[in-house]
Design a binder for these strands. Structure first.
Lengths: 224, 224
DNA sequence: ACCTGAACACCGTTCAAGT
DNA sequence: ACCTGAACACCGTTCAAGT
């Protein structure tokens, strides 16, 4: 929003500003379209100025991921272990849906980073206190995390597809291409299946099932 | 493996050859590195030759996805509904882990395409016969699918990270960065958590929990 | 119909250089 | 230390043209 012909003054840049601007660009243009050159132009500097703060594009994207995780507490859960898992899972889903770029980052590189340690601590402690063995607590945690990741990823993509008219046309075409004689149940449930492409109710359904399925791993306490 | 200086003869190309070669390139170089220009070079033609068969890169990638789904039957499941779901989910996971590029394709664009209709039919019919309502059957199907997607995606990424020494170093560094005073349970379960980054046992754990959590949705039959 | 080369508007990144 | 321009080796895609 200013003249880009003059040389940028010193210290116009800093890591926070770069990360924030990058995040804004990812939100408006999409993660795939994000480029260092576009970011530099937005900041009013040459592309190489960014390399003073980040070694390469990957490191910048990692910084964006870490920044997003640091903006939200996922770990202030209380009550019985089931409720604590629900709370962390719901918070994570909300964060991922709010920032689709974070979803794409998680889907394309490993390592949540230590930022999620707080959430992991909440989940894993709740499970241990409920009587899960070390191994089962770890397995349950990762099952929960991967479920949220997959659910949010699918929901986010379907939402994006339903945004533009062309996408809606493709969805209808896919549906219409399913043979009624070969796949009668799919055709019968077409409406219901379409309704599961996202939404709170769909997420709650799967989350509830998963958590219920974990209950046998608690140590049977006195209460029945 | 031949001279690329002469003009390619007519009909050296066809959709199947292009898709197969693209798939091979994705497997050796990775999906992210895949490019139309590299594919054209591999085929010994100019980049523009591909545009006779595919309108653009996205359409080619869709064709690769459809081809991969068509190579494997995911639907030959029998027995009680739980076993049928297990069978379809396990088969899908195997396909996804065998072809990480398919995973990345699914993770970056919606629409499984009608190729998965057979698998969906199996799952959804088993659920309906077990007494699930239309809505619950659809919800259960999508929960299962998104769980497999998330689990396979995470496992595949962690596997890739553990491939190269640099990645293993990063993993150790991340682990070491977790504060023992703030997150004692995470530190205590470090070994167990690391062991959940993949493997059949981890997948089975989550799959079993999810399916068990679906049991209340069956119509109570005479048995019991 | 099927393949071509030249060109356009992009990329990430290296390198040597300014201040 | 912090920002620069020029250059390299790439992209996907359009366009007009050959056969």
């Amino acid at each position: 929003m200013s003249d880009k012909r003059t040389r940028a003054p010193r210290n116009t840049l800093n890591p926070e500003l770069i990360v924030t601007t990058a995040l804004g660009l990812m939100k408006t243009e999409g993660v795939e379209a994000f480029s260092l050159r576009a970011l530099a132009k937005e900041l009013g500097v040459g592309p190489m100025a960014l390399y003073t703060y980040f070694r390469n594009k990957d490191e910048l994207i990692d910084a964006v991921r870490d920044h997003l995780f640091s903006t939200r507490k996922l770990s202030s859960a209380q009550g019985p272990w089931q409720q604590q898992l629900r709370s962390v899972a719901t918070g994570l889903r909300e964060l991922l849906l709010e920032h689709p770029c974070l979803l794409r980052i998680l889907a394309s590189r490993p390592l949540k980073g230590p930022e999620t340690a707080a959430a992991t601590e909440t989940v894993v402690r709740a499970l241990r206190e409920a009587g899960f063995s070390k191994e089962n607590a770890a397995r349950a945690h990762t099952s929960l995390f991967t479920f949220v990741l997959g659910a949010a990823l699918w929901e986010s993509q379907m939402n994006a597809e339903k945004q533009d008219p062309e996408g809606r046309r493709r969805l209808r075409a896919t549906m219409a291409a399913v043979s009624e004689v070969d796949y009668p149940t799919v055709v019968d449930l077409a409406g219901e299946l379409a309704a599961t492409s996202g939404g709170d109710a769909q997420f709650e359904f799967g989350l509830t099932a998963l958590i219920m399925g974990l209950e046998p791993f608690t140590t049977p306490r006195r209460s029945s």
